[in-house]
Design a protein around this nucleic acid. Structure first.
Ligand SMILES: [Mn+2]
Ligand SMILES: [Mn+2]
Ligand SMILES: [Zn+2]
Ligand SMILES: [Zn+2]
Lengths: 138, 138
DNA sequence: GTGTAAATGAGAAAAGTTTTCATTTATATT
DNA sequence: AATATAAATGAAAACTTTTCTCATTTACAC
């Protein structure tokens, strides 16, 4: 019952919001660009404008429902927030995304920030490479 | 003698290329956007188009003379390549950039890629925060 | 059911970067 | 030194991703 999720964060329950949420929950890709979401909506015959998709995703981000990854050449992907921090591996061949958590890295980052006198607010870490599947297929 | 540097990497010796190189070498900021370089050129009375600045920086990157950081909100900064890898701390208040090297993180990244079956090609790591100077000034 | 504030859609705008194409320039060859 | 030519440049247009504007529609408190 997603309507409650929306009300809980102070957002009116509208069709675009419900549908975007539905796409994020049911898509087989966990990480989706606004364009991906928009196209998935078109495929389910929902005529929701791209501007609205961006708006809704940004609001969801503000509400803590989704998080946004800012990938290299300035385009963002979104994923449902699951409450746990993780970082990403990006396949440069198929653009697939995998996740990882590494406490050693997390801790070293805090140590570096401290050592440099930074009050750390966040970090962004991406490992680029060729995923297993892409290596196998030639 | 930068002319040799250019010839060495197969680039014709032109005024825009020499001047962009000069800016990168003499500016007090090690990390500069294309716009920064463009403005610095204007200040030294060199009428070099922004498109040329982008072209030259991209060629320099291809030639291994500079490296490009792709910062969050989709705008790039460039720095002279010094042959050694390092990562960056970004101040969210003054946009200042500091550098660090951490072998533990480097090694953990390789371990994670290996564990996930990735053939790692590169990585990008940014620590965001408020730098010492900005903390002190209020 | 109504009123009102909020949300939406369509298109314009913004920001950063790349491309196009006519003109200029560097350099290899005479 | 003059010439030929492939490459580089400048200016403007195009592009990409995202945000904004504003007229219209919708959700929901009353
Ligand atoms: Mn993720
Ligand atoms: Mn650097
Ligand atoms: Zn892959
Ligand atoms: Zn600062």
């Amino acid at each position: 019952m997603e309507s409650q999720d929306l009300r809980k964060v102070g957002l009116k329950v509208t069709l675009p919001r419900l549908k975007v949420l539905e796409i994020l929950e049911t898509s087989d890709q966990r990480h989706m660009s606004a364009e991906d979401v928009y196209k998935a909506l078109l495929e389910m015959e929902e005529e929701i404008g791209l501007a609205t998709v961006y708006r809704v995703l940004t609001q969801f981000e503000g509400a803590g429902l989704v998080s946004r990854l800012s990938i290299d050449g300035g385009h963002a992907v979104f994923e449902l927030e699951d409450g746990t921090h993780h970082d990403h591996l990006l396949c440069v061949r198929c653009n697939g995304i995998e996740e990882f958590v590494d406490e050693v890295i997390e801790q070293r980052q805090r140590a570096i920030a401290k050592q440099k006198g930074f009050e750390m607010t966040e970090h962004s870490l991406y490992i680029y490479g060729i995923c297993r599947k892409c290596q196998e297929s030639q």
